[in-house]
Write a protein that binds this DNA or RNA. Structure first.
Lengths: 246, 246
DNA sequence: CGCAACATTGAACGGTATCAAGTATGGTGG
DNA sequence: CCACCATACTTGATACCGTTCAATGTTGCG
């Protein structure tokens, strides 16, 4: 396919610690890349898991919808993330995943994946590592959902996304596209949209961030980290991961 | 070591889908079992990860402590769980884990683990599956932490523990030892101890549960499930997991 | 028996939700 | 290019769920 795309993929896979031969073996069985528009569903809740899906570019979000219509976003993905590793061992997808921006995905059918994993321990290990990395992020979310106030939650989430984008991409460090609406932020943080709005204004008024038109600017990174009680160490794992294993 | 202990371990490992030969290979390198008393720390926050730790009997809890002393419990483990799979890929433990009851643990040094994983793909896969299963549980927690009221959170957590104990043990279905104090429940649910107390009374007054002296009785399972909006399917994965892989 | 941890109860406070209205913003078709 | 519409954002008033503080009862253990 497009070379540019393969560049993306290689970067993604090497982030989880795969050596080149392993990457090639894995990609050999990949379906043609799927281009998805903003808000298009990538994985449907309840759907049978049939392949590993890698997000090559763009952002995505996994959301759980309750009976009464309320929603909770349980994961946000950036380029390089495997968006369904934790569903793979199960027979079905436990929540829906949709694109937050125009996105490019690559699917690797389970059949091929199983075969590659049998031949190459490093691949199995990489999937485990990716799952563990996402689990680490989930634990942080549980901490702020359970024990932090609105402004700390919001600040922490912004820090996390900023940091992960930095790891994932060429790194526009302090200003980048931030595609979540305030409603989506609310569904991530367990707050109401109204309160997210007010909390954003608080952070703005303290000179910590700017956010408008889907563009986030961090004006005072140190200050934001402090409000967020952000300790990025738990994310550093994502870049070192698996280095010793290959 | 003790036969009884090996029984426990075998059960644990087969739950994550390991065939007997794989189990033996894994256990061959295990350190002697560790007996821990209630509240004794099993893993210390920040500690170097040096081995895979399996909980053979009892219950345990992983907790994150904030700067100001507040705590959030981010995981509860029952017999058969691997209590540090998601820390293993990292170099350090991201939170402390302590026994909730007298407990028995088995440690498998990383060096041995790496070797077994290289030889036996099923072992690597099992670790991935266990990590994914725990991730599924974490997602449920995020949903109720973010979007559910106190009584729903509490009911859901009780349902989950009950269900997992049932999967793990000989199954005293509707009455079992429940070692968490109200303070620990509060730190799990992201509530204050006072409100946990009141919420427990609510569930009691509705005839759904009884709870005293560390013993929980479910008086109306169906009713409790409804209050909790409990859908156990996400836990069934834990028993079927990996069946197709071995 | 006495102490310490745990559980229970009441009153006041506070953070966030909800309701309701109004204001940008951006995309679309005429 | 402008009018229009839908969606997103903003703002204020009120209500509520859960917290905090403080005190009292209870259980279990040395």
């Amino acid at each position: 396919m497009s070379y540019e795309l393969n560049g993306f993929v290689a970067k993604s896979l090497s982030r989880i610690g795969l050596a080149l031969p392993d990457q090639r073996a894995l990609l050999a069985g990949a379906s043609p890349p799927r281009h998805a528009q903003k808000d298009k569903s990538l994985i449907e809740q309840g759907e049978q898991t049939s392949s590993l899906v890698l997000l090559c570019s763009g952002m995505a979000r996994a959301v759980r919808t309750l009976a009464d219509g309320r929603q909770q976003i349980v994961a946000v993905f950036v380029a390089g993330d495997a968006i369904n590793v934790s569903d793979l061992p199960f027979t079905y997808a436990r929540n829906s995943t949709a694109a937050l921006t125009p996105a490019i995905c690559l699917s690797i059918p389970l059949k091929h994946l199983d075969q590659v994993m049998a031949d190459r321990p490093a691949v199995a290990r990489a999937l485990w590592l990716e799952t563990a990395a996402q689990s680490a992020i989930q634990q942080e979310w549980m901490v702020w959902l359970g024990r932090h106030m609105a402004h700390t939650r919001l600040a922490h989430f912004l820090c996390e996304v900023s940091y992960r984008l930095e790891l994932s991409g060429p790194g526009t460090r302090d200003a980048f596209e931030f595609p979540l609406t305030q409603r989506e932020l609310a569904d991530t943080l367990g707050l109401s949209p109204v309160h997210v709005n007010r909390t954003l204004q608080l952070l703005r008024s303290q000179g910590l961030i700017e956010l408008s038109r889907q563009r986030l600017t961090i004006r005072n990174r140190q200050g934001l980290y402090e409000v967020a009680e952000f300790e990025p160490r738990y994310l550093d794992g994502m870049k070192v991961i698996g280095q010793g294993a290959t």
